[in-house]
Amino acid sequence: MKNFAHYNARSVAEATHLLAAYEGKAKLNAGGSDLIGVLKDRILPDYPEAVINIKTIPGLNTIEENDGGINIGALTKLVDIINSPLIKKNCPVLKETARTVASPQIRNVATLGGNLCQDTRCWYYRYPDGIGGMIKCFRKGGKTCHAVPGENQYHAIMGAKKCFAVCPSDTAVALTALGAVLTVAGTKGTRTLPVEEFYTPLGNMLALDEMITSVNIPKPDPAAEQAFLKFTLRKPIDFAIVSVASVITLDQGICADARIILGAVAPTPVRAHKAEEYLKGKKLSDDTAAEAAMLATVGANPLSKNIYKLEIVKTLVKRVINSGSCLS
């Protein structure tokens, strides 16, 4: 790996000030499970000048219950989320989601903040510099997207314009379903931002000097059924080809409220609004599930090699509605 200056940040203020001082040429390092690969393969047009270790910031790795709900520090490791009784009780969908990420060794170091902020996995974007040079594209300030005319079997089927890479974060899908809100700190103070609004077509809403410090999950209705399904070729290691998270509240078999979120289909997690609206007030059955599944794909515009993802979206939506619980 090429050299960089290295800092152990002792506080959020230190980290954000360093980010500001390096004007975009520094990277935060949490678990490193994404960042180190990015650096090794030299996929970015500008190699960072500094790496800022944020694991040395105290107090950002706790899971706590408060009035507003469940608060999870950005440096909380996925393994701790999986093992937390609080998470299991209140937001099993997040536990299920975290369980499907990567491998045990990675979950032992990977953080929630890092999972949300990880860079895209589009294989053009990730193409290693050592085999003929990295590939420039829209997302790297270039002029084209290679996925559209190329190998796009894992790319977006909806909601994309210039860049067709999908949001790789699994936890983002569950957190969107749970209506979670991020706390973001910068040199000028902190702000909050719903996970649902965090992603942009070419990245996320963080300013140069900002980082996520915690994630707040409003306490879900105890009656709500939470579910997550992730479709991959292999259970471990693989990123989602399609995933679906749902939080559905039933009142005597009638759907009182539904949040259905599609993952890995677009540059952001996608709320299946039409399906959600349709389900409300309906009795859940195979037929309503099938209709909701159809509605979830309305407006999709797949590429040459990923039409099959539509079928998988429909199947998973049907299945989360039918299973009604956290089966993966």
Binding site: Y127, G150, E151
Partner: peptide, 15 residues
């Protein structure tokens, strides 16, 4: 998996 426009192997990694 080869991108035949670029001639590059897109999945030359263990993920």
């Amino acid at each position: 998996i080869i991108d035949k426009r670029l001639g590059r192997i897109m999945n030359a990694n263990m993920i």
